[in-house]
Design a protein around this nucleic acid. Structure first.
Lengths: 134, 134
DNA sequence: ATACATGTAACTTTTGTAGTTGCATTGGTC
DNA sequence: GACCAATGCAACTACAAAAGTTACATGTAT
């Protein structure tokens, strides 16, 4: 597919749902629209459900629905629900021998963490309904 | 290694060099400090050289040196030199059948592109010497 | 009962990238 | 000139993350 596909798929789907918030949609419908696979959709939307952004119902006439008003779902909610950490680097396992090196690594990590936070802040300023009406 | 290793390696190395800007360092020295491999170092630093952030010299007593004063190298310079596009999604090859879908995809891409730009803006506010002294 | 939906596990395929090896090229030093 | 130590680069392997796929259990309207 492409890079950032989870975030992209999630935003696409939610923005789409923001148009008709009460309509129930199946994974298959969503997958068709997004050009992907129902299982992939369920995997991604499952994360959003865990974060309280969506609800799902099994069985006949089941499917997915927004758990909140679209105006109350921000891009940061989505980003965090997916556990994305695009900027911050993962913690380093191997501690460097030199303590000066170690201190420098911590500083780099700290700076990247700050940038990550500012990214989340920026994302929190836009809702999925704003994406739809962009 | 870890996620974001190129950016992390680049920032680590440049911040380190910012301490003694005139000292020449070899790929091997840098690799030892960063816990990686000289070839990997040359690959990453090569990008920074193309972007005018570093110079390299072959032969005996060769190695790497900052091309500018550390105060004049921002994190955005590094990010852009590495061609990182952490937020923005790549363009989608397959055009969706439905034009409404297509329009929505463009809007999602557009929003992500805006976020990407604000990330670069944020990165431009910090120099590698500030990382060092953090 | 049946049909249709999610939930999930297991597996394959793809892709990006680190790591590695080998060698050509360059430029000091003896 | 011989030699050594550095970058530059190509080709390859190893590995991990994620998408895609298949299969099936579970739940729920009709």
């Amino acid at each position: 597919m492409k890079r950032n596909s989870r975030l992209s798929l999630a935003l696409h789907t939610l923005s789409h749902m923001a148009g008709e918030p009460d309509r129930v949609r199946t994974s298959s419908d969503i997958a068709d629209h997004a050009g992907t696979n129902p299982v992939v959709v369920r995997r991604v939307l499952g994360r959003l459900r865990e974060a309280g952004l969506l609800t799902s119902e099994k069985g006949h006439a089941g499917g997915w629905r927004l758990a909140r008003k679209p105006q109350e779902i921000s891009l940061a909610d989505v980003y965090l629900a997916l556990d994305e950490r695009l900027v911050a680097s993962d913690e380093i396992s191997e501690a460097p021998a030199c303590s000066v090196e170690h201190a420098l690594q911590k500083r780099v990590s700290g700076v990247l963490e700050e940038i990550e936070q500012s990214l989340v802040q920026k994302l929190s300023e836009t809702s999925i309904s704003e994406v739809r009406d962009a």
